[in-house]
Structures are given as structure tokens and as C-alpha cells.
Simulated scan of single mutants.
Amino acid sequence: MEPVTEETTAVVGEGFRRTTRARNKTMRAERGRGFWRLGTSTVLYVMVVGGMADYVDPQVRVIAHLAFWLFIGLGLGLTVARERRHDWAPRPRWPWLLAALGGAVTAEVLILAVGSPAIIVGSIILLVLGAFFLMLVG
């Protein structure tokens, strides 16, 4: 048997030493891609408020509309603050207004047109189709 000789080998990771500490590096802020969260939350709001309409007092629906408008306004405020903080060009503001007013009007029109049971069944069908699509795309 031959004796094992010690050779000077590079230490693992030697070629990958940082010149700048990681916490000093700034990460580029990424802008959101579209209004998917706004649209999804508006559709879910219409499903919930439309589905509960026959089972609660009308005052509860009014409170739900006001809370939804408050959350939409809060989301718009956070988006504007983020745009200013990262020096991004301002995005259109009309989708926020459309979501706030369109969601409330759509819920009320669906309640008057088809009623809560049909909205519940339609919501379940829409959620199942959405889950199927999400499973397809990964």
C-alpha cells in the first residue's frame, strides 16, 4: 500500500467568497404584475356578500360594503405609498374605483336578479373551475 500524501487543496467554497457583505446589498424592488389580487378579492367579496344576502339583515350588507370600500381605499393608499417610496411611475387608479363601486353594484344586482341560493351555487361552480385551472397550470 502506498502512503497517503497530503496535498494542499482549496478549501470548499474558497472561490466563492463575498467581497461585500450580504446585508449591505440592496435588493431591487419589484412591481406587481397587474391587478390580479384586486380582481380576485372583488370577485370573492361579491360571492360572500351575495351568498349571505338572504340570511342576514340589510344593515349587515351595508356594513360589508363600507368595510370593503375601506379595505379598497387602504390597498390604494398602500400602493400609492409604495410607488412613491420606490420612485415608480404611477399606475392607473381607475381599477381601484371600478373594484370598489363595481363589486358593490354587482353584488346588489345579483341579489336582486337571482337571489342568494343561485349565487352560492354559482360561487361554488366558479371556485371549482378556478381550482381546476390552478391545478392545470401548476
Rank of each mutant, 00 (worst) to 15 (best):
P95Y: 00
T9C: 08
I111W: 02
L78H: 14
F68G: 02
E7Y: 01
D54G: 05
A100H: 00
R28I: 12
E7D: 04
R85W: 09
P92E: 14
W94N: 03
L110N: 08
V56H: 06
L129E: 15
V137T: 14
W96R: 08
R31H: 08
F71V: 05
V60N: 05
G51N: 01
G32P: 03
F68V: 10
F71A: 04
V4R: 08
R37H: 14
D54W: 02
M52V: 13
L97D: 13
I125Y: 06
M27Q: 15
T8F: 05
A29R: 12
V12H: 00
W69L: 08
G15Q: 12
L101T: 13
G130Q: 11
T106K: 00
V105D: 04
V49R: 03
L78S: 11
T19L: 07
R84F: 02
F35P: 07
R21Q: 11
S41E: 12
D54F: 01
L38H: 07
L74Q: 03
R61E: 15
R23K: 06
L126P: 07
T20E: 13
L136K: 08
L112K: 13
E83Q: 10
M135S: 09
G122A: 09
E83S: 03
A22E: 03
M1H: 09
H65R: 01
G103T: 00
G75H: 05
A64C: 11
I124R: 10
A10C: 10
T20K: 00
A22K: 00
V43R: 02
L126K: 00
N24L: 12
A89T: 11
Y45T: 00
V4K: 11
G34C: 06
A100V: 05
P3C: 04
R93N: 12
G138D: 14
E30A: 03
G13R: 06
G13I: 14
I63Q: 08
L66Y: 05
R84I: 14
G122K: 08
I72K: 09
A29H: 03
L76A: 04
I72Q: 03
V46A: 06
E7R: 03
F133K: 13
I63K: 01
F16I: 08
N24Y: 00
P117D: 13
T19R: 09
R91K: 03
R28C: 04
Y55H: 02
V80S: 02
M27A: 12
T20C: 09
A100S: 11
A118M: 14
H86C: 13
A107Q: 04
L126N: 13
V109C: 07
L76Q: 04
A67G: 04
G102E: 13
V137M: 10
R84L: 08
D54S: 05
L70S: 06
F133A: 12
V137I: 13
V121L: 11
L78R: 13
L38K: 02
M27C: 10
G122L: 01
A118D: 15
R33L: 12
V109A: 10
I111L: 06
I120D: 09
